[in-house]
Design a protein around this nucleic acid. Structure first.
Lengths: 270, 270
DNA sequence: CTTGACTCTCCCCTTGCTGGAGGCCGTAGG
DNA sequence: CCTACGGCCTCCAGCAAGGGGAGAGTCAAG
């Protein structure tokens, strides 16, 4: 017969926990002194305590443990319990992995945006960008329809995203309503995913301008960069790109005055 | 200005939750009617509510959310938070995967044991067993030293275990103290793991006897099977095996009278 | 004016305990 | 013999993140 303190050390359960388990009817002491109220535990209690610890380690709730201890005395009876618990855990793990991939996305976006914004100023520059893997969804519509495409891309390729989202504009001229747009997410590596096209987006020389401010004012920056390119005698070679370095985020809408978008016009090679 | 019911639908938070968030100082209604106590929310509240929902979706605690909302207004400030949360989640996922692999082990053991026990009776039989992949730890000592080896095997190859544990006895004669034993776990497929030897255990013809009862009585079953083999003119070819179909488990010690162990004596081919 | 839908506050419940206050029991030391 | 100390007791409060429900007051439409 052990007093509660000794038993607590043997069983690896705190005194409070032992009293709590008694209150729940999960583990009753072998004897309770009527006068002093002292609890006394024996070896059979110890065995039960170890079983409880093992089951708790398998993430069973105390109610389930109580049920198991009441009704079963052999592990082979527990297989269904194990199966059920496993299914629950697998599901929980899946959800947590989704959250992790979402976090990855946010982190990658911020890091990549930080990198680009550090070297960019507000003048038109010519630079060479590396090719990159992207997942894209091409559609016809308005700019504001991009949001749902980016959400779909996030769901489809979540954990492989390597930086801030971008759009390709396939029209030669500006269109308000029926533009030919591809919403893209850069990827760490090529993957296959449902409903999106994964390919390598060509690198090469681009004229780039960092636009700071709300999207309504993008027109001015376009005018500036187009003027600059024409004066330099360049030719625009492919769909132009907008890289959304800073925009309304998942958490904060943020301040449109602080939005940052890089306009990239790929140049014809001579 | 929305009343709480409408706002609740817009924000996707229950009325109870909104009141609770107010109590916590997380989301204060834009106005509270002094006479009636009615809460009134506006669009700025809505934006904040969406931010809260997003952060809660990332598994942040309400305290952290409160802190984030108080001190930040831009996602780029949150990268460290994201990193921390991700690290925590990854750790949690790892632990849950450990539990899943433990559950897998228990399930596999029970299923395999069930299969063998259904076809075995209590007579010596000759049967052909298939080769199987095993992970083993060989040592010198007593039978009771197996326990810790099985635990080590479980940790090392947890999620690949395909059935009940077994022991190989390399001595020609019975030894109490200094036996040459290998504790083994059957594997679903060959893997490499630290501290254990993984190899294919040969199949072939064996004399087998299902021993039911406590380990102390194994001697009798050994006498029976050895007598039978000698009378049949067979020769024992390799270390003999004990497969622990039912024994003291992780959860229940069980009843030793119900333990089941299959003794297998591999036979020399003629 | 009534009716029905909303909303209010207040309290208890959940899970698995932990912490603390105030008090009892037995023993060892001065 | 008195006291200090450790161990034990019961009871209360509280954690996260709300959910359920009672009883009472409010709002808007018919």
């Amino acid at each position: 017969m052990y007093r509660i303190g000794d038993f607590s050390k043997l069983a690896g359960l705190s005194i409070k926990t032992l009293r709590f388990y008694q209150e729940k009817g999960l583990l009753m002491p072998a004897a309770v002194d009527a006068a002093s109220g002292y609890r006394y535990y024996n070896d059979s209690n110890l065995e039960k305590a170890r079983a409880i610890v093992a089951l708790r380690g398998l993430d069973f709730s105390l109610d389930e443990i109580a049920e198991v201890l009441r009704e079963f005395a052999d592990e082979s009876d527990l297989v269904e319990y194990f199966e059920r618990r496993k299914a629950e855990l697998v599901e929980r793990i899946r959800r947590q992995e989704d959250v992790v991939s979402l976090l990855d996305r946010l982190i990658a976006n911020e890091n990549a945006a930080r990198g680009i914004m550090q070297q960019a100023n507000s003048r038109v520059e010519t630079k060479t960008i590396a090719p990159q893997w992207i997942a894209g969804i091409r559609f016809r519509g308005k700019y504001s329809d991009c949001g749902s495409r980016f959400a779909a891309l996030g769901r489809a390729v979540g954990r492989y995203i390597a930086g801030p989202p971008l759009c390709l504009y396939y029209d030669d001229e500006y269109r308000e309503d029926d533009a030919d747009i591809e919403a893209c997410m850069p990827l760490r590596k090529p993957i296959t995913a449902d409903g999106v096209e994964v390919r390598e987006l060509a690198g090469g020389e681009v004229a780039a301008l960092l636009h700071r401010g709300p999207y309504e004012l993008l027109g001015r920056s376009y005018a500036k960069i187009l003027k600059n390119v024409r004066e330099g005698g360049g030719e625009i070679a492919a769909p132009c790109r907008e890289v959304y370095l800073k925009g309304p985020g998942m958490i904060f809408r943020g301040n449109p005055k602080k939005y940052a978008t890089e306009i990239q016009l790929p140049l014809e090679r001579e």
